[in-house]
Nucleic acid binder design. Structure first.
Length: 882
DNA sequence: GTGTTCACG
DNA sequence: ACGTACGTGAACACC
């Protein structure tokens, strides 16, 4: 690669492109001073991509100086009739220039000339000096500058996608040389620049003429060779226009610019100024990206290194402000190694790698104190980590992770630095920046690690008041204090309790299923006439649809679809497909559940899942390592997995209670629909009642199972934010039938219809939707021009308050449930939550108590306008619940 | 790392 | 005209 690389950017063109690429988000890109910033943001994105790709030694951004140029002198209407630049864009040009200054990039404009001419003149000089030049623009005109050393990159889709033109590529797709672009434009004209060329000559004819004659001049010298009478007439009539157009289209490569290539040396970002600029613009993304460089500019952080000699000097007075961070290496805090800890007491930071200091009486008492409150990042993680050391973390007041998630469910990174950045706090780096990523990840030396840890507790401490203020502003303080924060410790204790797994059951299932799979596999190979990887959708597709010529039902982006729905359609006619379905079912059970679960068992013969409390967009929990919220239940073969989930003591039972139709009940309550409410109040079979209504039957006794099934699907659809297409696809009925059902449904349940409309309208107005406990979900796409994005946001606006409120309810029930068990001194333990279901283990003699207690607590968790309904079951394992 | 499939509510 | 059910996690193939 040449050591001299020049990047030339058409500033106006790229700023325009950036603005319109992000036009949908123009109103979410507003900085604190009310200035729109979407074009500046997009421009910078493009800049990053280009700097990274071309690694230029020299850069210049050229701007147009104004409306009047030498071209308007020649032709007064040049570029006339263009739409006025929107105000939201005009205000951004000065900021683009400021961005460039801070990025160490020169820019230039010249009276009477356009950006094109500056670029043309400089690229000519650069060609002579032996530079490799890249021109970036949104405008095809500049392709005329292509040469051996100069390429033109034209951004098409937004600003990140570019098409790169070099001499060969211009020739390949146009069939003419770069220089001939001018002749081509002279003949066809340019409507956006408002000049016409030759009447009746468009892209194609112009190309043909240029190919045949080489240039406008040569064409007019050989007009007699032109075929087509009409064309000849137009050419003759518009000769003057064509020559004017050629002049207008020609980029001036000798503009009287006062700079040379030497003046465009790129010296890199001015980091301190750039950070200030990004802050002014509210560009969190760019701030986080450069936080690795940022460390040099951060103020020094003081700390005291703790050891066994000075640990007892720490004296914490009541009312002290204490922040604590426990460092662990890896995500799974049930087993992760400790790295160290940081403690901030008022203005002093204490750091150590020696985790045993925490077990020293002094610090242990501090962490366990109910008098002195603590601030943390991820209280659940901290609680479990300390629990392993025999320390019971108590009195947590502020959890940065939880608060951040409640304010915006997208702020859910488990990396403290990233979360802090989202709240405009930049004096801490992300773990990724400090520890490295992937194979390069390593815990750094003490000086770097201690600095990082000190910054973490500083961040927690600094953000506390700000985030509490924001929670208050959003009316979310109760949700934080009464639900999420206490729940995090309930979850911690459930995770610590774990569930015993009977290994022997899984091991015996493993050999049985393996045998079965072997049999099915042989039979499939026999049918196919060859061996192949049945688990590979690609290979399977080739066997079924190419080799065996089965009818193609559906395709995916990458090939034939072999999803269950597709195979089920084919199964009755093709035995091999039936076998593939069998094979899929058993191999899923084997790999994900039997083998997967076996590998997650800890030394205590238990699985200790981790609930992710700050991940979902709706407020639900999720579960990982292992995921205990998707253990099979729908098919008997899969359900057998549950036999391995057993109580931890002899003569104990597994006990489970679940809400029936909680989401529909929530909908009935928040929509205020009287018909639906009545049906729940009378404890009717809701799906049967829906069937009666939408099929116009006189009584629920006329509802056949098929009617009920369809009505149930409609009820599901309603909760998901229904569309006729979706309902039709899911139930196999026609789209017009689906449409009719939905209309009938809304006529019968008018309150539901109104709720759906209100949800969407309120989301469009406020930008977010809320649950009964004020849990928020922001929907930035709700006003998008793109149909898909907007529709998705609209369905989300309908669904999230329902799904989220149901999540709110069970969370309250869990907190109350733990309190009740403790209050009554019961041995029973809450082990699992599966969205609408709570699972316990308990001594047999407590079952009777639970049968009354659990439904009572769950029923009364939240007061709705309809009753909640809870059903309970128990048995010797999670499988045999009766 | 992305896409497909399939397990759950 | 557009082209869609809501929310998740894990395994595997394939690049």
């Amino acid at each position: 690669m040449s050591e001299k690389r020049l990047l030339l950017i058409d500033g106006n063109s790229i700023t325009y492109k950036a603005f319109f690429a992000l036009i949908n988000q123009v109103n979410s890109f507003i900085n604190n001073e009310g200035i729109h910033t979407n074009a500046v943001f997009g421009f910078n994105n493009m800049l990053n991509i280009m700097l990274d790709k071309f690694k230029p030694t020299n850069v210049l951004v050229a701007f147009d100086a104004g409306k009047t140029t030498f071209r308007t002198e020649m032709y007064a209407d040049y570029k006339a009739g263009r739409d006025k630049t929107p105000d939201e864009l005009r205000e951004q040009f000065d900021y683009v220039k400021e961005l460039l200054k801070n990025r160490g990039i020169k820019y230039y404009q010249l009276d009477n000339y356009e950006a094109d001419d500056i670029i043309g003149t400089l690229s000519k000089e650069a060609d002579q000096l032996g530079f490799e030049t890249t021109i970036v623009t949104g405008d095809n005109d500049l392709t005329q500058l292509c040469s051996d050393k100069t390429t033109v990159s034209i951004s098409n889709r937004g600003v990140s996608g570019v098409v790169r033109y070099d001499t060969d590529y211009v020739k390949e797709i146009m069939g003419i040389t770069p220089a001939q672009i001018i002749d081509w434009k002279a003949l066809k004209g340019d409507s956006s620049d408002n000049y016409s060329g030759v009447t009746g000559v468009g892209d194609k004819t112009a190309l043909k003429l240029v190919t045949q004659f080489g240039s406008v001049e040569n064409l007019y010298e050989h007009l007699d060779e032109v075929s087509g009478k009409k064309l000849l007439e137009h050419l003759t009539e518009d000769k003057e226009s064509a020559f004017l157009a050629k002049k207008l289209a020609t980029i001036n490569r000798d503009a009287p610019i006062e700079i040379t290539v030497d003046d465009t040396v790129y010296d890199g970002d001015h980091i301190k100024e750039l950070i200030n600029f990004y802050r002014e613009m509210n560009f969190r993304k760019f701030l986080s990206e450069m936080s690795a460089d940022q460390v040099e500019t951060m103020d020094k952080v003081n700390f005291v290194e703790l050891n066994s000699d000075n640990v007892n000097d720490i004296d914490v007075k009541d009312g002290a402000n204490v922040s604590f961070y426990l460092g662990m290496d890896g995500d799974n805090y049930h087993t992760a190694d400790y790295i160290g800890f940081a403690l901030k007491i008022d203005e002093t930071n204490y750091i150590s790698r020696n985790i045993e200091l925490l077990m020293d009486d002094n610090l242990k008492a501090l962490l366990e104190s109910d008098k002195i409150s603590k601030n943390v990042f991820d209280g659940k993680r901290t609680y479990v980590g300390l629990n392993r050391l025999g320390i019971k973390l108590n009195n947590v007041d502020f959890d940065l992770l939880l608060a951040s998630y409640l304010l915006d469910t997208n702020d859910n990174s488990y990396d403290l630095g990233k979360v802090a950045n989202r709240h405009d706090y930049f004096d801490v780096q992300s773990d990724e920046d400090v520890y490295g990523k992937g194979a390069k990840r390593a815990i750094p030396d003490d000086d770097i690690l201690f600095d990082h840890f000190a910054r973490k507790v500083n961040a927690i401490n600094s953000l506390k008041d700000k985030l509490f203020d924001e929670l208050k502003e959003n009316n979310q303080l109760d949700l934080y204090r009464d639900v999420e924060l206490p729940l995090s410790f309930v979850l911690a204790r459930m995770e610590i309790a774990g569930v015993v797994i009977n290994k022997d059951i899984l091991i015996s299932m493993k050999s049985k299923i393996s045998e079965k799979l072997l049999e099915i596999k042989e039979s499939i190979y026999n049918d196919a006439g060859e061996e192949f990887n049945i688990a590979s959708p690609k290979q399977l597709g080739e066997i079924l649809f190419d080799k065996m010529q089965l009818p193609v039902v559906k395709k995916t982006k990458t090939g034939y679809s072999t999803a269950v729905g597709v195979l089920e359609q084919l199964a009755p006619d093709y035995p091999i497909v039936e076998k593939v379905l069998e094979y899929r079912k058993y191999s899923k059970i084997l790999s994900t559940y039997v083998e997967g679960l076996l590998s997650d068992i800890h030394v205590d013969n238990k699985v200790h899942t981790r609930y992710l409390q700050t991940l979902t967009q709706t407020g639900r929990l999720s579960s990982v390592d292992p995921n205990l919220q998707n253990i099979p239940v729908r098919t008997e073969e899969g359900r057998k997995i549950r036999q391995a989930f057993i109580p931890s003591e002899n003569n104990w039972q597994i006990f489970s209670s679940d809400y029936s139709q909680i989401e529909l009940r929530v909908l009935a309550s928040i929509s205020g629909d009287k018909n639906m409410q009545d049906e729940f109040i009378h404890n009717d079979d809701i799906h049967a009642s829906t069937a009666r209504r939408i099929f116009g039957l006189s009584d629920n006794s006329e509802v056949t199972p098929e009617y009920r099934r369809q009505a149930k699907a409609v009820n599901f659809g309603i909760v998901y934010g229904i569309s006729d297409f979706g309902l039709a696809k899911n139930t196999g009925i026609s789209r017009s039938d689906a449409k009719e059902f939905i209309e009938k449904y809304f006529a019968e349940y008018p309150g539901v219809k109104k709720y759906m409309e209100d949800s969407v309208n309120s989301a469009k107005e406020k930008g977010y939707v809320e649950t009964i406990l004020h849990r928020r979900r922001y929907l930035p796409d709700i006003n998008a021009k793109n149909f898909n994005l907007r529709s998705f946001a609209e369905r989300t606006a309908m669904n999230s308050p329902i799904q989220g409120s149901a999540a709110d309810i069970i969370k309250i029930a869990m907190i109350k449930m733990e309190q009740e068990l403790e209050k009554r001194n019961l041995k029973a333990k809450m082990l699992l939550q599966v969205h609408d279901e709570l699972i316990f283990e308990a001594p047999s003699e407590e079952i009777e108590i639970l049968e009354e207690l659990v439904p009572k607590v769950m029923d009364s968790a939240v007061k709705l306008n309809v009753p909640l309904n809870v059903k309970s079951h128990y048995g010797n394992s999670w499988y045999s619940l009766k």
